[in-house]
Design a protein around this nucleic acid. Structure first.
Length: 476
DNA sequence: ATAGGGTTAG
């Protein structure tokens, strides 16, 4: 009698059985879903384990690191001109997908020295996309020149990545002139991808006034917007807290045009925008509304709900979301727990925060640098700084990799407490752990010195901060 | 190509 997982009718029914948020708040109402069928459905790979957790398992990370380092080492000496293609290409692949741009460029240099090397525009496109993401515009520019010098003709992909690199770097004019150049080349006419990337850049740079022109340009060229184009604009307005424009300009025109249907990303952007502004009624309204349009929530949706209820101090509802996920075999993720921990930490509810920290570990989710940032900040705010050293020792005995942001939190915590000596010790520890101090580290320490009346120390650091900034400008 | 987690100051 048990319906099969492959039975589409059953799938549809079980999805449409999703209760409204009102019902979720109601708590212990029984769901009409048998454990067996739910388990089967839960096994459909996207619910049981979050994809990012699967993809980034520790062993995989370690393997990638080793492969990258191995190949990278060889790139230092000029000798290795006959390496196996597979090793080099895989290392390059891993470095690119982890955004390790320095390694990637080194490995690419090695690749170019191989006897079997053949320039491929796709490799250039992927490198350019990565350089855009990490804002290395200068490197993107010279990589493009290298490509031309190898006699490769830029493809549509390459041009599009270049548009992204300039756009995300804040050079919208340059990005636009590349699009103009593209229009003159028969195989490289800009398409919906190209324009969507540029529109997304405008959103991130808060240059919304440029968007109508781009849309007009598209329609003049006969390029149809896609769902992704609308999503980028909707999320852009939402992030800038322009909720009126988001709902009544972007979302309405999407729904009215009817040529692209909203999807779960549209839904998540909209409810995140209302949730972030603590407009819970509208958030819930849109959650139900999107479900009526046939769009099902995913783990990201639930994370957004958890975060929003937490921010609005509606802890029972936050609990209900967790309970609901459990009942429907939606696994939470590290992000879910990090959000809850951050939420209780913010209001100095140490007890609840530590409860969820334990629960997270019991349920097999590994805390990461972000988790520990929230803990340190909470201990600092609540005046429980004495808990921090034990925590650091505990991390030391684990394989958790800490980063610059974590140490910035620690340094800030001791700085706020006026504990200058420990603060300076933490800077040393930070360097020992191979985390580079950044401009936030310096500003944090400068503030601390100022508060303690240590103007000389503050001035010295200020000079270092300025040096640091000019260095960034030169390499960026 | 788009959505969800942590860091300073102003």
């Amino acid at each position: 009698m048990e319906p099969s997982c492959l039975d589409s009718r059953h799938l549809r029914l079980s999805f449409s059985a999703a209760p409204t948020l009102e019902a979720m708040g109601g708590g212990d109402r029984k769901r009409g879903l048998s454990v067996n069928s739910a388990k089967k459905r839960g096994c459909s790979k996207d619910t049981l384990l979050s994809l990012s957790d699967q993809k980034r398992s520790l062993s995989k990370i370690l393997r990638e690191e080793a492969a990258i380092l191995n190949v990278e080492r060889k790139s230092g000496s000029g000798k290795h001109r006959n390496l196996w293609p597979k090793a080099v290409l895989e290392a390059l692949d891993d470095a690119i997908s982890n955004n390790q741009w320095e390694s990637a460029l080194k490995i690419f240099g090695l690749l170019r020295r191989q006897r079997w090397y053949e320039p491929k525009s796709q490799t250039y496109a992927r490198l350019l996309t990565m350089l855009g993401k990490v804002r290395q515009i200068e490197h993107a520019r010279s990589l493009f020149q290298i490509m031309l010098s190898e006699g490769l003709k830029p493809t549509l992909d390459v041009y599009t990545s270049l548009v992204g690199a300039y756009g995300y770097g804040g050079f919208l004019d340059r990005a636009l002139s590349i699009i103009d150049e593209m229009k003159t080349i028969s195989d490289c006419k800009p398409d919906a991808y190209t324009y969507t990337i540029l529109i997304n850049c405008c959103c991130k740079l808060r240059q919304f006034d440029q968007i109508p022109e781009l849309l007009a340009d598209m329609s003049y060229l006969g390029i149809e917007c896609t769902t992704v184009t609308y999503n980028a604009i909707i999320d852009g307005y939402g992030k800038q807290e322009c909720l009126e424009e988001m709902e009544n300009k972007s979302l309405s025109s999407m729904l009215e045009a009817g040529s692209c249907l909203p999807d779960v990303v549209t839904m998540n952007s909209i409810i995140d925008a209302y949730g972030n502004n603590e407009r819970i009624i509208e958030m819930e309204k849109w959650y139900d509304e999107f479900q009526h349009m046939g769009i099902d929530p995913d783990v990201t949706t639930f994370n957004i709900l958890v975060k929003s209820y937490g921010k609005a101090a509606m802890y029972e509802k936050m609990d209900s979301v967790m309970k609901f996920m459990k009942e429907r075999f939606f696994s939470p993720s590290t992000i879910t727990f990090n959000l809850i921990i951050e939420c209780f930490g913010r209001v100095k509810n140490i007890e609840k925060m530590e409860y969820y920290f334990r629960l997270m570990k019991v349920q097999g989710f590994k805390p990461n640098s972000i988790t520990y940032c929230s803990l340190v900040n909470a201990y600092s705010r609540a005046g429980f700084l004495e808990k921090v050293p034990a925590m650091i020792r505990q991390i030391d005995n684990s394989d958790v990799v800490l980063d610059t942001a974590f140490f910035n939190c620690v340094i800030n915590a001791y700085g706020q407490a006026g504990d200058i000596n420990i603060m300076e010790e933490m800077l040393l520890l930070m360097k020992e752990k191979k985390c580079n101090p950044d401009s936030i580290t310096f500003s944090t320490m400068i503030q601390a010195y100022r508060r303690m009346g240590m103007d000389e120390a503050a001035r010295e650091l200020e000079i270092m901060l300025n040096d640091h900034k000019t260095k960034i400008l030169k390499t960026g």
